[in-house]
Design a protein around this nucleic acid. Sequence first.
DNA 1: CTAGGGTTAG
Length: 837
Amino acid sequence: MFFRQSPIACLLSSNLDVPRSTGVGAFAMSDENAKIRKFCEVGDLRNAVELLKKSKKAELGLNTYCSILQLCAEHSCLQEGKTTHSIISSNGIPIEGVLGAKLVFMYVNCGDLRNGRRIFDHIQSDKVFLWNLMMSQYAKIGDCHESINHFRKMQKRGITGNSYTFSCIIKCFAILGRVGECKRIHGYVYKLGFGSYNSVVNSLIAAYFKDGRVDSAHNLFDELGDRDVVSWNSMISGYVMNGFSHTALEIFIQMLILRVAVDLATLVNALVACANIGSLSLGRALHGYGVKACFSREVMFNNTLLDMYSKCCNLNDAIQAFEKMGQTTVVSWTSLISAYVREGLFDEAIRLFYEMESKGVSPDVYSITSVLHACACSNSLDKGRDVHNYFRKNNMALSLPVSNALMDMYAKCGSMEEAYLVFSQTPVKDIVSWNTMIGGYSKNSLPNEALKLFGEMQEESRPDGITMACILPACGSLAALKIGRAIHGCILRNGYSLDLHVANALIDLYVKCGSLVHAQLLFHMIPEKDLITWTVMIAGYGMHGFGAEAIVTFQKMKIAGIKPDEITFTSILYACSHSGLLNEGWGFFNSMISECNMQPELEHYACMVDLLARTGNLSKAYQFIETMPIKPDATIWGALLCGCRIHHDVELAEKVAEHVFELEPQNTGYYVLLANIYAEAKKWEEVKKLRERIGKRGLKKSPGCSWIEVQGKFAIFVSADTSHPQAERIVSLLNNMRIKMKNEGYSPKMRYALVNADDTEKETALCGHSEKLAMAFGILNLPPGRTIRVTKNLRVCNDCHEMAKFMSKTARREIILRDSNRFHHFKDGFCTCRDFW
DNA sequence: CTAGGGTTAG
């Protein structure tokens, strides 16, 4: 009955002499403490703290504070934890020992690492638990360095770690990619006797997988006696991470056979494996399994499921998975956006981005890069700019991946100016930034800018294999053999040639630089050729006029089990047309439809028209165009117009030209072509009319331009250029050549001149063509016997072609001339095109 | 006594 009274009532009602040591407080304290502890036991934190606030210092015991702090920690209630802390302080309780540890635990668990750290530093505890707590929390927020610092301090103080310490430190070193340290810890762990702890071994397995040491990881797993679900999950995710999704799924199946309990992480990893190998049926089975295991409310499960359906090319199921989700995150939206991109529905993907934003889900780096990728793929500069403006309006920070995605978008949409603007405004660039810009310039036919940036890059950053694959096409389009060779050397020194992208780009480089022998050599050295390798070589043979070799290569490719795609067919048809192989061309065209189930596209029709027209089947070509299932464009009619010129069919040319002019009224090349056809038929009146027509439209003929690389420098010539320092020597060489030609019975093909002037004037005009100037410059400046390689932006003219043949014989030089259409190898008075181009 | 090792997107 005494105990049931309140302490105050006791004091007032009693005059008993109570000993001081056990005192009134002692009885009262147990009462208040018990009440608070009772609240804590049932998880009523609010009432526990309220009562704590009302209680006096003397009424409270240490355990009571600890109970409340424990509850705060478990429920992550920082506010109540702080209140408790301040009561402890104002009550003058020293922060040390168990109470100090509890405070650290509370702060750290509530995510207030700063206050946790302050108390941790203050109490100077040697408890391993607290050290582990700090380490793992730093690791959790991604500050691996601080976590490692703690570990080092711990070692200095002579505190021996336990399994928690080592699993954490191994993870930190693994994240930082310091596998050497992991190995060191591995040995240390064995010495201390933690070598059989599954938590430690599991983190080691993950560390080795992260470093690509699949075998080491697997050995650890084999030797691990006490495997738990995490061990299995580590194996599955490790194999997936290293690109062995099939093995990952085999391990998953093994797990099912051994009846190891599967958890959420297991299913998520297995679903990723299914997504990677496109195994829809297994993915569906896992879907069902997960629903039965009650994971259908887990965001992680649903997001992975959505992505699995997307990657298995099942957009409908992906949409359904999204719609069934109770809770969506930015990850769900991003996966859905990517799913639409994968299906080619770019506009819908872009629309989803804005819908997500309007639903209050703020975009992150991944969603932003995805939507920019959608803009890039849809080739829509306006939509890409809109997204860019959206960032600016919302003051969103441009992180490096976002800036890189912006550059890529602008580059793919053809605006290198805007791409460069982003690039120049990116203070710290990485290799991706440089590669994106260099590749962008290459693909947008700005090879000089690509080379310039490549030079700048080397001052700041080390190029990698991708850089090489980006810069090589620029060298190719300039026919910059010397620079290309230097880059080839760099590739060999760094071992980049093992990368198939690089190897393919190198073959293409040598093809484009006219060095077919080198291209062939490299081609034969590649043990595992992919579709691109074969296609590049087929196109290369075609461009150089080796149709038969192109066909043999095509057949070898099929034997190697590689299926041709649309581009391969373009290349082989192109090769047939450049060598005049009509029957073979038809064969490939038909097999494309019947054997490979492909719909020929415009470029395939263009090749066939070209082939028919060149071989003189003009009316067949006309019929072929008229029966095409798709609308012919200017290049198709243009190919026929070319044929009309070769076979001097003025009547058909006029008919065809009207189609061309209607489709591409701004393209001067076609007017010039028709003018030449008239000129060759000596229809000067018609030439004059056409010139007037061109004049009215205000069209300008794009100037012919040729260049040649001598000692790593380019000499560039335009038609009738007299500004070159060696102009006099060049002209006299050409005049001498012309005289020699006349003496040997060659007459200049005057009918190819556009002007109706007297013969002398025509001859001068003929002599001024840029390719002649470049070839002459080559003869004058390259050591005897060296092959002369000239590149021209337009098609070579017939007169220049004749002269090149003559030059190759009289000057005893091999000349390789690349025009906008193909290669001409001149040797001993003959050309590989056999005058057929 | 408390904690951890394995978890989706580009």
